[in-house]
Amino acid sequence: MLDTHGRKYVNPLINSVAGFLLNIGFTPNSVTLIAFALGITSSIFIYFDLPLVAICTLWISGFLDAVDGAMARKKGITTAMGTLMDITFDRMVEMGIVLALAIKFPKDILHLLILTMCILISMTLFLTVAALTEKKGMKSFYYQAGFAERTEGFIMFSLMIISPNNLEFITDIFSLAVIITAFQRFLEAKRILK
């Protein structure tokens, strides 16, 4: 929801950084790899009890994840491989955070497993609809907006990281938001995939 409705407010910053990185020789794929490395590093910081550093690296990773796409569009070089890397690395970063939290807080592992299942269901719907529809948007595939998009996910992950005493509750709220999104995407798919 925030990605869909708030992107216009951060686009000037994203485009400015994209232009700067292109000017100094970075490619969209190199920025994708840097964003991925930072996102995975976030999981390591969780494990070593550095929650604020973990949150900062997570958000920088997410910002660069938006910048790489803006770079590709500026250069007119959006590729299927870039899209594949982007989507795959996003999920790996998310699962890295869930895994790090599960290792640190094993008493909450069932709740984290349920969250993982909810993300899997929602992403399956998202990717299947993207593959089956001919609609295109700003991205190289059909992007189904939803109640819980990447920014909401980062907010929830940040709360999970910073407040481990409330991890079970926050994780359950996150799972509910993701399932609402999955249901919303299913209803939209039913409407557009006739």
Rank of each mutant, 00 (worst) to 15 (best):
V129S: 07
L2T: 03
E152R: 03
L187Y: 05
A145W: 04
M123F: 08
F141S: 05
T181I: 07
I24F: 08
F126Y: 15
G25F: 02
I60M: 13
L176V: 12
L64A: 04
F141K: 09
V178G: 01
R91P: 05
I60F: 14
G76P: 02
I162G: 15
F169H: 05
S43L: 02
A35F: 11
A18Y: 10
I97S: 07
K136E: 05
D172S: 14
L112Q: 05
E168P: 02
G137T: 01
V129P: 08
N166K: 14
G153K: 11
V31W: 05
L176S: 10
G96M: 11
T88K: 03
P106H: 10
T88P: 02
Y47C: 03
F183R: 01
P51V: 09
C118K: 01
D172L: 15
L132M: 10
F126D: 00
R185I: 08
K135E: 13
P164R: 02
I161G: 05
A80K: 12
A189W: 06
R185N: 09
M71S: 07
C56H: 07
L64F: 04
D90N: 01
D86P: 13
E152S: 03
I173S: 06
A102I: 03
L127P: 00
G82W: 00
L84P: 00
L132F: 08
Y9F: 14
L21H: 01
E168Q: 11
L58N: 12
N29A: 11
G69L: 06
A66K: 02
I192Y: 08
C118H: 00
K104S: 15
M123W: 09
I180T: 02
I55Q: 00
P51R: 05
M92G: 08
V17L: 14
G39F: 04
S122I: 01
L33M: 11
E152L: 03
Y142K: 11
K139Q: 09
K139M: 10
R73E: 09
M71L: 00
T83C: 09
T27G: 08
I162T: 02
M1E: 06
T151N: 02
V178N: 05
A177Y: 01
A35V: 14
F89Y: 11
L50H: 13
L112N: 06
L120Q: 14
R150G: 08
F20A: 14
L2F: 08
R185T: 06
R150H: 02
L84A: 04
T83K: 15
T124I: 07
F154N: 15
F36Y: 13
L101C: 10
L38M: 10
F183H: 04
L113M: 15
M95N: 13
T133W: 09
S43N: 01
V53M: 10
F63R: 06
L115R: 11
F174E: 06
S61W: 01
N23F: 04
E149D: 11
M123C: 09
G146A: 13
G137K: 00
T124Y: 12
N29K: 12
F186L: 15
M138W: 06
F147D: 03
V10D: 05
I170V: 15
F141D: 06
M160Q: 09
A54R: 11
L58F: 12
T32S: 15
I55V: 15
L38P: 03
Y9H: 04
K8P: 01
F186Q: 13
D65C: 09
A189C: 03
P164E: 09
M117V: 14
E152C: 05
G39P: 10
F20L: 13
T171P: 14
R73H: 10
D65Q: 06
R150F: 07
D86A: 07
